[in-house]
Design a protein around this nucleic acid. Sequence first.
DNA 1: CCTAATTAGTTGACAAAAGCAACTTTTTTA
DNA 2: TAAAAAAGTTGCTTTTGTCAACTAATTAGG
Lengths: 142, 142
Amino acid sequence: MDADKINEVRQFNRFYTRTLQLTNKYHLGTGLTVLESRLLLEIYENKLRTANELVALLDIDKGYLSRVLKSLQKRGYIEQTIDDADKRSKLLALTTLGHNTLNTINKRADQQVDQLFSDLSDQEIEQVISAMDFIQKKVNLS
Amino acid sequence: MDADKINEVRQFNRFYTRTLQLTNKYHLGTGLTVLESRLLLEIYENKLRTANELVALLDIDKGYLSRVLKSLQKRGYIEQTIDDADKRSKLLALTTLGHNTLNTINKRADQQVDQLFSDLSDQEIEQVISAMDFIQKKVNLS
DNA sequence: CCTAATTAGTTGACAAAAGCAACTTTTTTA
DNA sequence: TAAAAAAGTTGCTTTTGTCAACTAATTAGG
């Protein structure tokens, strides 16, 4: 990559990360923090089944995670049931409330995306999408 | 946009936000938190001159910001001088250390981007960049 | 088998980050 | 020129996150 191109990508990367929220206030109008909604997402969409898997993926303290999960359970977003195959483990699953909340979060994130794309032509959208595809494939490989 | 396309973009958006760090550990190997490095960036690259402007942009508590800025000053990253035109305000500026640190952060972020793109063909890179360009223009307008 | 090491998760104690409200000083408004 | 507003600070509290010691269940090695 030549210097000009590097610079464009750098600008984009800074731009993208700058649009994200910095502090941990409630996320997209739901009663969840950024971490909590990420946990719901990983449990449901990425099929992570135990606290241990979440710790490995997200690189957070297991003691802290234990408490966050307990709080999510108390507030009715998830269920934790002891795994009969390994009684040290607890299997994680979303409740109906958890599902609904995750759906709300996704819907709102999608609205943001819609707005982002609302003025592009079909051809431009096509190009953006295939570009995103490249990046995503590359990162998933490494 | 039809449903399939929306879905692809949604996936990308979730993917991108998921690659970002969730907790506030030291950022890219420097002695700064994510918020602190963002502050340096906004002061220098976006030319924000007062705490008040930072509060408006980032939507953070002004009391908390006041303390973070004091800490950045104490550690030698910024200077705060009283604005003679309005003695309630303090003008913010990076010190040499602040500049150097911001450069380091940018350099490391760029290395990550380099790696991200290292396996793409020239044509692919071209496409990704123009895609990013579209998005960025769109968002800057809205 | 059966003890030692490992693993999944919990808990206590603490530190750092963030939020809220009351306050001071300066500037603006009416 | 007094009252209201604005910029920033400070005290107090809550939330978030870290670290290390702990329990209970499982696995590995002799």
